[in-house]
Design a protein around this nucleic acid. Sequence first.
DNA 1: CAAAAAATGCGAATCGTTCCTGTTTACAAA
DNA 2: TTTGTAAACAGGAACGATTCGCATTTTTTG
Lengths: 133, 133
Amino acid sequence: MRENFSRKREAILRVVESTKCHPSAEWVYERIRKEHPDVSLATVYRNLKRFCEKGCVRSIGVVNGQERFDADTSPHSHFICRSCGAVLDIPETPFTPEALGEIGARHGLRVERSDVRFAGLCGKCAAKVQNKS
Amino acid sequence: MRENFSRKREAILRVVESTKCHPSAEWVYERIRKEHPDVSLATVYRNLKRFCEKGCVRSIGVVNGQERFDADTSPHSHFICRSCGAVLDIPETPFTPEALGEIGARHGLRVERSDVRFAGLCGKCAAKVQNKS
DNA sequence: CAAAAAATGCGAATCGTTCCTGTTTACAAA
DNA sequence: TTTGTAAACAGGAACGATTCGCATTTTTTG
């Protein structure tokens, strides 16, 4: 049985789950308003935070001043284009849970997770830069 | 010959270079004011941004809402304590420049860098949690 | 030293996010 | 169906980090 889920909460989760663009709160808000014009931005923020706490959504950190979210909580990394801000999934994940344990032991820490962010230019932006010669 | 360096700019860079705490702009501001009480917060921000552009300082991203900086630009990773927010250096760096090239080729991207963030509890905070049993 | 360029201080503005408060909704018991 | 209660919500105010605008000061150049 699913948890307590109000209509709007469910709609917000569906929006996050239905995209691979790693949306910001604002993006989710714009999108949700097409179906539910009476949802407030505060509700989007509240629920995104709640989903992260419950573990069904993951924050992938702040990109250009906005926090970005991902409903795919399986292990994977991200690439961020420094030109257009796009966030793409990258399957490579260098550290196994055991490796995290070893690193933690070596430094006297309890390492729970690792996040890898690649940065550079996505295909489109790399092409644009080329053409400016 | 070093670049154009005003007195205050130099002082700000020295502060960043003199700590391993991966400071925020606010931290640098508080610290610099002990020697130069007339430095403004805007100048700290302006110069941190400039140092990042010049490459002599690196941003290590946003931690608890504040951007954190590191004057050690050699390859290394970071651990962030989810309880106290401390940022520690971790020598492990899983991707060589060649590996980044390969990953980029595989996905049609120009991958320029990778940043690894470990998260969990630092020694002190792990101990505190233990004691709460 | 004078003129031009660069850097700064300070307060206002911006922007993402969170908080506050009165209202609405969901759900269970009567 | 009505009533009571807790959770969720809307909307706007508040907040905090960062940036901007512009007058003033410092540094550089000739």
